[in-house]
Simulated scan of single mutants.
Amino acid sequence: MSLEVINSPIFVTIQDKGRFSYAHIGVTASGVMDEYAYYIANMLLGNSYSENILEIAFSNFQLKANSNTQIAVTGAICEVFINEKPYSSWQTINIKAGDIIKIGKILSGSKVYLGVKEGFKIQKEFGSYSTTIKENLGGLNANRLLKGDILPINEKLTYHKARLKECYIPKYEDTLDLRVILSYQDEFFNKEQIDKFFSSEFTITNEFNRMGCKLSGESIKCNINGIISEGISFGAIQITNDGQPIILLKDRQTIGGYPKIGSVLSIDCFKLAQAKPNTKIRFKLIDIKEAQKKLKEFYNSFN
């Protein structure tokens, strides 16, 4: 009872919410880049909200079903084929043994999520299924998926189907507004530099992966050259020596020594995860109380 990888995908990993409470020994949180798409996939399938899922970063990924199951594809808008027949994403699809599942071109966005009923039956490491390649943890053999990999699943034959309403399906745009909480070392940036940071438009560079997203634009000057290395949160915005911001994401290092002007609201990082190089970024200030309110609203919406 399994799904089998039948081509050579470029970068597909198994992820869940991530692993926590291990930063003190240098283990990053990891986890899905777009939690909205992740939660919706598990909701459609009737899974636990902590179930594992496939995160697909590039086009052309193919699986063969060796048993009956049900899948849901969410995230980036993409071509979905079952035995060469096209299907829409953001819905459940019933799969029979022998079916060929193909994720074709990614049309809008950049991360596709493929969940399966009751998840993949693999072992957790440090409390998580998430693949962290640089730390040799999680997933299937602590690596991205390769041709011939076998993903164990439970046999499930169901006739129930679910589809997300159109109004809840995200639209992936070429310009993003990211809300920022001023924090960390913002006192080391004078008012002119902070004003420049919030009034400028930045561009996502090709240096964008699961660890972080480097931007290009107006140079932001800091009054200090560096800091003693310290812990780093999801969404922290480092200002490097060249004055360009780096937004740190799920596979970020656990400590760092660049000054940080603030932190992107985590739920906005999920939108950032679906962006592509050359996307335009603008930052908007949000205070801590409003940020906490938005976070509660997001996660409570899945209860």
Score class of each variant (00 low, 15 high):
Asn68Met: 03
Lys121His: 14
Tyr159Pro: 00
Ser48Phe: 07
Ile261Phe: 05
Ile100Gln: 09
Leu265Trp: 00
Ile281Glu: 04
Thr69His: 00
Lys85Pro: 06
Gly98Ile: 03
Lys294Arg: 13
Asn136Phe: 13
Ser233Met: 11
Asn223Gly: 09
Leu107Phe: 04
Leu265Ala: 08
Thr158Pro: 07
Leu63Ala: 03
Lys214Trp: 05
Gly212Asp: 06
Ala37Ser: 13
Ser263Ala: 12
Met1Ala: 11
His160Val: 14
Ile95Arg: 02
Gln91Gly: 00
Ile232His: 02
Glu135Gln: 15
Tyr184Trp: 09
Gly98Asn: 10
Gln91His: 06
Asn300Lys: 08
Ile261Glu: 03
Glu155Val: 13
Phe270Tyr: 14
Glu51Trp: 01
Ser89Ile: 15
Leu164Tyr: 08
Pro170Lys: 05
Lys293Thr: 09
Lys293Gln: 11
Lys111Asp: 07
Phe302Cys: 08
Gln292His: 11
Ile232Met: 12
Cys167Ile: 15
Tyr172Ala: 04
Phe20Tyr: 11
Asn52Cys: 04
Glu297Asn: 09
Lys280Val: 06
Lys214Ile: 09
Tyr38Ser: 07
Ile10Lys: 10
Gly18Trp: 04
Asp149Phe: 03
Tyr49Gln: 11
Asn300Asp: 10
Phe58Val: 03
Lys102Ile: 12
Gly256Pro: 07
Ile122Arg: 08
Lys296Ser: 13
Ile267Thr: 14
Lys111Leu: 15
Gly115Ala: 15
Ala65Gly: 04
Ile14Lys: 05
Ile288Leu: 14
Ile181Glu: 04
Glu207Thr: 10
Ala76Trp: 04
Met211Asp: 01
Gly217Phe: 07
Thr254Gly: 06
Asn42Lys: 00
Phe20Arg: 08
Val32Thr: 12
Lys134Ile: 15
Lys260Phe: 01
Gln244Met: 15
Cys213Thr: 09
Glu297Thr: 12
Glu187Cys: 10
Asp16Ser: 04
Cys167Glu: 14
Ile281Ala: 06
Ile133Leu: 15
Lys156His: 09
Thr92Trp: 00
Val27Leu: 14
Gln70Val: 14
Leu140Cys: 11
Leu63Trp: 00
Met211Leu: 13
Val180Ser: 03
Met43Pro: 00
Arg144Cys: 13
Glu173Cys: 10
Glu173Ser: 13
Ile106Ser: 09
Asn66Lys: 07
Leu285Pro: 01
Ser48Ile: 01
Lys196Thr: 13
Met1Leu: 07
Ser88Cys: 10
Glu84Asn: 14
Asn223Glu: 11
Thr158Phe: 12
Met33Cys: 09
Asp16Arg: 02
Gly115Val: 06
Leu285Gln: 12
Tyr39Leu: 15
Gly31Met: 03
Ile227Asp: 04
Pro86Thr: 08
Arg179Thr: 09
Ile106Ala: 10
Gln253Leu: 12
Leu164Asn: 06
Ile153Gly: 06
Lys289Tyr: 11
Tyr129Thr: 00
Thr74Gln: 02
Ser88Asn: 13
Ser233Pro: 08
Leu44Thr: 06
Gly243Ala: 08
Asp99Phe: 12
Ser216Ile: 12
Gln185Pro: 04
Asn52Asp: 03
Gly127His: 03
Phe283Asp: 01
Ile169Glu: 05
Tyr38Leu: 09
Lys117Asp: 00
Gly98Arg: 03
Leu285Lys: 14
